[in-house]
Amino acid sequence: MSQQPILDVQDIVKYFPVAGGLWSKPKAWIKAVDGISFQVYKGESFGLVGESGCGKTTLGRTILRLIEPTSGSIKLNGREITRLNQREMRALRRDVQMIFQDPQASLDPRMKVASIVTEPLRAFQKTGRQQLRDRALNLLEKVGLKADALDKYPHAFSGGERQRIGIARALCLNPSLIVADEPVSALDMSIQAQVLNLLGDLKTSFDFSSLIISHDLSVINHMCDRIAVMYLGVIVEMAPSNMFGRIQRHPYTAALVSAVPTPDPHKKQSPITLEGEIPSPVNPPPGCLFHTRCTYCFEHCRVERPTLVEIQAGHTVACWLNNGRGL
């Protein structure tokens, strides 16, 4: 890991208004992302994992400024981007691209593949027709699609192939950071492995850093070097992935890991069952956000929200239990 992070996120907050009447002020706020900080270093794969509704997508889109953050700072290659105007921001998009969850929805059904994959290129420089086609061809080859795909429309492809098209588009300008929001969640089992391998291979050949978002712990664990676990808009634990499969210090992470069914009939699991449901992000509990479902909860947890504390090199946990002790 080098010194300067590619992406440096500090205290990002995103609240969505709950619409009141047509003309009135919002009644309340959905606290989708509530103070998140992390860094992604060069060459690294950083994973964000958490259950649906915990704010992963909102965070990912905020980092690309597809959504405006309520507050906080985002530095891309050392440059603060939250205050850039639309034109300046657009110029910056060369360097950071996105892969979307739904390969069907994220490709324009009325555009041919050749135009789709070269869209980033056309956005930034005047390029001749032949050059565009050459680039498209080159990209398709890189993601394992045949040349005859160029002049077809997205509907002619299977889900896995469409995701390859989406990946080719993201790679078009050799970005230094790729944000992938659930890149394999919509794919079939036997196709998931292909796309995961492809992303791994491309990462080596194109040399980008990535921020991978997924609800699937095994996917994140497989793909990422470091992992952050989110709950209700905050990060509760952050650790390198090799540590992640074994030691978890946050009760939520421990429950999450134990709930993933192991594909091994000889290891019968007894998951740590969490009581109740995730509280609403409109009315998050005071103190530690997880205290309403935590079996270890004590007095202090109800009062003050814990911050991320480093308990080991590269391993941080936001839990009052871990200020010195462990689970």
């Binding site: 690309l64 597809l66 110029a91 691209q97 979307f100 929805a105 994220s106 490709l107 980033p120």
Partner: peptide
């Protein structure tokens, strides 16, 4: 639709 967001993320004006 999501492909508009994808285009925006690609840098399209």
């Amino acid at each position: 639709r999501e492909f508009i967001e994808a285009a925006r993320a690609s840098g399209a004006s």
